[in-house]
Design a protein around this nucleic acid. Sequence first.
DNA 1: GTACTCGATTGACAACCATCTATTCAATAG
DNA 2: CTATTGAATAGATGGTTGTCAATCGAGTAC
Lengths: 117, 117
Amino acid sequence: MPVDLPLAPKQKRPAGEPCCEPVVYPDVQREQAQHLAAVAKALGDPIRLQLVDVLRKHAGKVCVCELVPLFDVSQPTLSHHLKVLREAGIVDSERAGLWAFYYVVPDALKELETWLS
Amino acid sequence: MPVDLPLAPKQKRPAGEPCCEPVVYPDVQREQAQHLAAVAKALGDPIRLQLVDVLRKHAGKVCVCELVPLFDVSQPTLSHHLKVLREAGIVDSERAGLWAFYYVVPDALKELETWLS
DNA sequence: GTACTCGATTGACAACCATCTATTCAATAG
DNA sequence: CTATTGAATAGATGGTTGTCAATCGAGTAC
């Protein structure tokens, strides 16, 4: 994840010259940044963040019917948020008859946590 | 941050009754979730995440003129992203003559990191 | 079978977002 | 003073997002 920008202070510079040479950003990092940002983006809604919070607290699988009454949004809206989290790879679901049970994918948040620390 | 959902399995239930009682979500947590989500949202763009990454790697303050050539976006667009990060409390800036130097606010990401772990 | 229930999907709509070009503002250089 | 420069702002635009009401599909209960 390191970048190694050649970061000269450049307090003063000659008038006509450019301020600094363009630095190539490694593509590997760019891809990882895209993934990290995608996870962060999925967490960037209060309802989704609380959903993840609830699911993580109850380490097991949680029925959607338990989740809906926790929030002041309609059932389709909550279903949409769960879909966003699923597509970001943060949660997954399992059906049992009529019910759907959601859970946090193990280590799905680890990469972001590592980057943050 | 704990939630303490009374999470009964509810494998089967009588037909007419509701699936589960509504559970009150503590308002304290709701506010914290809003803050955490705001920080995550600001990180939810690849360019902004890479900006934070660059600024964190170079523990000092970095001139905007160093940052612009790193990305394939115009200078106003980058300025916009820096503003978003500033308004989320993640970075701050300091002017020295014509130049503006940005840096990551110490511990700005700590709350999110703690929540993630 | 019919009636009902849970959850996902669809379609619509307003709000927001990332991006650009053009401009402005402040500071420096001459 | 004027010209130039680094960065922020304004305005426009196409795309995305959060939300809801309505509907659908699959499973269950009778």
